[in-house]
Structures are given as C-alpha cells and as structure tokens.
Simulated scan of single mutants.
Amino acid sequence: MTGLVLAFKDYKIARGIWGSDWVGFEVFREIFAKPDFTRAVRNTLLLNILDLIFSFTMPIVLALLLNEVKNVVFKRINQTLLYLPHFLSWVIIGAIAYQLLSEGSGVINNLIVLMGGERIPFLQEDTNWLISYLAIGVWASMGWGTIIYLAAMSGINPELYEAATVDGAGRWRKVWNITLTSIRPTIVTLLIMNLGKVMEGSFERIYVLQNKATTEFTTTIPVLVYRWGIESGNFSRATAIGLFQSVIGIILVIAADRIAKKLGEDGLL
C-alpha cells in the first residue's frame, strides 16, 4: 500500500520513493488526456461486461443441468471434465486455443475445409477474436463456477421438492420456484463480487490471446499497466492507472451492495 504514493510523485529510481518529487494529481491528468487510456477503459468495460453476462450466467445454467442428473457416475465424470480447465494456466489455454482456432493450421479450420467450407479467422480478425475470447473464457471458468452453486443446491430441503410434486409442479417449475429461489443469495453475493472486477480483467488472458492482426480490443487497463510500468519503466503512470482501477472497483462493489440491500438481499457489507 505504501507504493501507491508513486501515483502522486514523479518517480525516479535513483531518488527512490521518498526522494522523488511530489506532483500531486499531475500524473492522473496526464494519463486521462492520453487516447490509449480512453481506449483501454472502453475495452475493459466492454470485455468485462460481456464476460459478466456470459461467464457469470453459464455456471448457473450448468449447475442447474448437473443438479437434474440422477446418474451419479455420469455426473461425476462430467464434473471432473468441466472442472479441468480451471487448473490450467492461461499460457496453456492460449496455446490450445491457437492449435484449435488458428486460421492457417488450426484443427477446427482444417475440419471446416475438409467439409467444404472456408477458413474462419477466429483469432486473426477483431470481431471473431472478441467472440473467441468470450467463448474461451466461458469454457475455462464455467466448470469451476458450478462448484459453488452445486454446494448451495445441496443445502436445499428435499421436502420442498416433494411438496411441489404433490402440488403438481413440473420439473421446470421446481427449478424456477425452488432451486433458483434457494440459491438467489449466493447468486447475488457472487454478482456483487464480480461487479468489482468490471474495471480489472485478466491480463494473462488478453496477453496470451492477442496478436498483431487484432488490436481493436486488446488494449485494456491491465495491459496498459504492463506497458507503462514494465516495458516503459514509468512506474508513476502505471501506479496511477492501477489506483484508478481499484477505486472504481470499490465504488462498484459498494453501489451494488447498497442496491442489493434495497432489493431485500443480504449483500456483502
């Protein structure tokens, strides 16, 4: 936390943190005026909001489907296969993605050509890259996200389902009125926590999937922190944008928590 003072100083390595000149909010005014910053904020919000829509909802859907599976062996096998991507680093996932989706020699494109189609630039064109980025994120995270929801579902009283059956409720009515209602506090809590990450995003995910052919959506706040701080050595600028990102995240979490409480949920705070 002490290092955050760099955001308010013209940091020079030779002078150190305390010996560098204090410049107040000059560093913030400098980065706010840069076109790269505006672009990074736009891309960060776009990628993370789309990611929130798809990567947040898919684990809920998957958990509901697995909860309906009665064959224990089949259920456990599927759970294991779905959880596996969570234990892979983004470097490995990126390598797998390029092996599968590369336009020139990707396995999927080779299959498309064999079936008489044309190669698709999944990772070599901006719009296709965005779709592939979201799809890869869903695949990598949805299995692990189901663990929390399945754990919440395991605590539901079976008598509720029995009573619903007696009342003539079908499977979908049980899911809607019992399962989703029972796990709603868990969904709200995780949603609030994920809203705090809307201004963050995964640097590793962007870094391993980016290439020179797709530059429209790959400039995000974590990428700017890396470029300005590590590549350019401007630690004051990198610290300032990181601090800006964290402050916005805290504001979003508090705002979402207040809204959730007004709607009758427990919230986080």
Rank of each mutant, 00 (worst) to 15 (best):
K261W: 06
M142A: 12
L268F: 00
V198W: 00
S55K: 13
P185D: 08
R42L: 06
L268H: 01
M199C: 10
E118D: 15
K9F: 08
R237K: 15
E30D: 14
K75D: 10
E200Q: 11
K70I: 13
I131S: 02
G229F: 05
E103F: 08
D167I: 13
I96A: 12
R15H: 12
P158I: 04
I230F: 12
L64W: 01
F203P: 03
L65A: 15
G229N: 08
N194F: 01
I221V: 13
R173P: 00
F8K: 05
L191T: 03
A256S: 11
L66C: 12
T220G: 07
W176S: 08
P222K: 14
E26Q: 06
K34L: 10
D126T: 14
F28N: 02
T181N: 13
A33Y: 07
P35T: 14
W144E: 04
E231H: 03
K9E: 05
I221M: 04
I53C: 10
T239Q: 09
V188P: 01
I60P: 01
P35E: 15
V247G: 03
K12L: 12
T189Y: 05
A14Q: 12
S132M: 07
Q79L: 06
F54S: 04
W172L: 14
I60T: 00
L84D: 05
V41S: 10
G19A: 09
L50K: 03
D266P: 00
R258C: 05
I17D: 06
L180Q: 05
R39W: 01
E118S: 13
I147F: 01
A40N: 08
I221A: 03
V198A: 04
F56E: 03
K12G: 13
L263P: 00
K12A: 12
G233H: 14
Q210D: 14
A256D: 06
T239P: 03
D126F: 05
E200K: 11
D36P: 07
V208L: 09
F74M: 13
R227Y: 11
V138N: 04
V223E: 13
A151L: 06
I251S: 10
S132A: 15
